[in-house]
Design a binder for these strands. Sequence first.
DNA 1: TATGAATGAGAATTCATTCAT
DNA 2: GATGAATGAATTCTCATTCAT
Lengths: 244, 244, 244, 244
Amino acid sequence: MVEIVRNSETDPCEDLLDGLRRGRPAAGQDPVKRSQIIDGARRVFIEKGFEAASMNDITREAGVSKGTIYVYFANKEELFEALIEEERGTIFKNMYDMLDRADDLRQTLVKFGKVLSMKITSARVIQAQRTVIGASDRIPDMGARFYERGPKRGHDKVVTFLNAAIERGLLEIDDVDLAAYQFTELCLAGLFRQCIFAYRTKAPTQDEIDHIVRSGVNMFLKAYGTERLAEEESHEMIAIEAKS
Amino acid sequence: MVEIVRNSETDPCEDLLDGLRRGRPAAGQDPVKRSQIIDGARRVFIEKGFEAASMNDITREAGVSKGTIYVYFANKEELFEALIEEERGTIFKNMYDMLDRADDLRQTLVKFGKVLSMKITSARVIQAQRTVIGASDRIPDMGARFYERGPKRGHDKVVTFLNAAIERGLLEIDDVDLAAYQFTELCLAGLFRQCIFAYRTKAPTQDEIDHIVRSGVNMFLKAYGTERLAEEESHEMIAIEAKS
Amino acid sequence: MVEIVRNSETDPCEDLLDGLRRGRPAAGQDPVKRSQIIDGARRVFIEKGFEAASMNDITREAGVSKGTIYVYFANKEELFEALIEEERGTIFKNMYDMLDRADDLRQTLVKFGKVLSMKITSARVIQAQRTVIGASDRIPDMGARFYERGPKRGHDKVVTFLNAAIERGLLEIDDVDLAAYQFTELCLAGLFRQCIFAYRTKAPTQDEIDHIVRSGVNMFLKAYGTERLAEEESHEMIAIEAKS
Amino acid sequence: MVEIVRNSETDPCEDLLDGLRRGRPAAGQDPVKRSQIIDGARRVFIEKGFEAASMNDITREAGVSKGTIYVYFANKEELFEALIEEERGTIFKNMYDMLDRADDLRQTLVKFGKVLSMKITSARVIQAQRTVIGASDRIPDMGARFYERGPKRGHDKVVTFLNAAIERGLLEIDDVDLAAYQFTELCLAGLFRQCIFAYRTKAPTQDEIDHIVRSGVNMFLKAYGTERLAEEESHEMIAIEAKS
DNA sequence: TATGAATGAGAATTCATTCAT
DNA sequence: GATGAATGAATTCTCATTCAT
């Protein structure tokens, strides 16, 4: 609005103004500020849920002004969606790495099952899932998008993994897709619904998870394991025994 | 309280007394009106979730005045809780009847599994569960109460059923509690989370459920079934073949 | 609506109906019920003030139905006015009797002053006055009417009394009207405002009132008493001394 | 706090810094807006009383939005209390200044009595007192607080003043506290209750007050004045006569 | 005539969003 | 570009009054 022509050499305000101007990203483009907002939003949304979280709370928590938030996110819903997107990324990041190594089948399943079960039932992730579920009435497709890009992708990786094991002759599975679901469910047996309904107020212990996953993997392999698997496992047993 | 036996044909006081007795139900006591309110509330809460549902919406949907709602329910939360309580009753009513009949084990498991899976994943029940989960931030213990009086009780019945089968020598189970969870999860394999996150927008088909439950029961029996079970099943097979 | 033809000789409902019908006053005419309503209203209005008192409270307290109240009183305000009218009657009833007896002047003033002071500062009367004052924004003229028919009438009686004393040569007063006010104020010195603003939460004690009234009467007689009064008083002193 | 002396003619940073320094006052900190709200509130509360005044009315009258009011005052009660506090300050400000000058006693009492009587019975102050009294049912201690910080403090100043006069040998008073109340009441004789009950709809005239106060002071001095006072007053009379 | 369930306008308060600074 | 004070629509809940029974 006001065009100020100044001689930058002599202007005593130079430094100050420069600092403000230099390298300032375009509106809504500064990734640091964006993170700052999302971090504040996370704390508030996760604690209070979508509706009960107020933009003022987020403002305070994020340490930015309300106006700024509205530069980065069109409204509360968009902010929430962005947060969930990020959260999803964090949750499922690395969760399936284990499946890439072609290790001993049983052990891989157990290890992966534990990671999966622990992540999905961790306080933070449960809270996030609850918030997504609660908000999906308001923001249609939000839950679907979350599932598709999170659990669904994971599921696909499990399918791939199982197919590889089938290829190796270790498993014999009629409906691989279903088997993948079965495996996941067995690893979470009793836990997911208890956590999501807040019947359990604390995440399951390591021991609980160990017990559940081990039992689930047994069941799974009893159902789908081949002769070959049995042999391999006995070899390994021997190997392990030999080691000890 | 007072049982009055009257010959309604001849009693000229009939109308007067009748008026006093039947009359209008006491404030907040008319079950018809109560139902009317709850029905309206159900439609609104289920559609919008707890927070987004406004008492005005419910007023409109229920066709009663705002004041009347507040005669029947102290506030929005109590109305919601009453609705959820009712819903829970409806959902889990009769769901476990199948387990009371000591029928052929595999068939019972299959039948029960189908009912369970169908109920839990029906559009209405999923919506209700979503609403409960979403409201738990606001109304602590609401989710826990729902789980405890619903799924938890059902789980206990499954445990009892499995114990009976163990008694009969049909199953051999190390951790019955876990096994009960496993069974339930297998019947819902892949379905529950897909539904609750609205990834699936429609309830699974009968065929899908059949396939999943059958596969789950197979897995379960492969893991926990005894020799004796196998024998019994083959007898039954023969019986069934004889029939056809 | 329904015309019921009955043979009153043989009708077993006769007594019951008769009891209901016999001597029933016209709508809104039964003085007993009216009292019952006003009594309930008094308790509620005095305790909560005009606005905070709800018709439901009054209904409960009075033990009559809401409809009935509206038969006797057109609305909340009218009920309140009727109550105040009655209350006023009770408060000022007999308060000025003392002034009718032509007794010893000083003693009469002291006795009357005590009664006046005690009544006006009693918890109930203060509460009533507060309620009237608070409601006068809502109901114009209500306070004026209360004052006119209560304190004002009392004031007139004091004026009459003082005039009689002047006649008897006991007082010499320039402005009798003002003197009457002065007397009243002196008897309440410091009390009225303290009570009405709830700075004092309890009514003054008998001793306090004695002290204040005695001091006020002294002041009053020093200002307006004649030689003749002094003589009469000394006579009386002698009489009293003789008695003892 | 920090006094910055700058030559605004030449400083190119002027606009920027100015904007930062003056800027907009912090939320709920702008005294102008606060006054605006209180002024609107005063009009509404005084006219309608606490309960009958709606926040919407105040919003309209003050010309600010509802939200803004709630930034400055937590709720209706706090707004009302702030208003009363301010009003109290205004009312009693300077009222007792007269007592600080050690002037001729009778004249000082008359002058002070007039100011007191005029203030307390002015339309605005009566309205304020009525509002406080009416609200005390809702906000306990509000009336007490008003009395304590207003009339009570004034009373204390009168006591101090009387004690000084006693010291000077001009008055002889048994119970100074009571005497102070008596003096105040005499100055308001007949007025306060008439005004507070709205029996009088207009404030008393100057002449009325003159008459009442003069009479009251006479009475007071007849009761408590010493020989010495009489002498001084006659001296003064002479002085005054000499002047004329 | 008496009843009290039902009504619905209106209360206080909150909070996502805007826009002047 | 950033700020945060101001906005006012929308929320939950109350209660004087009505009117079918």
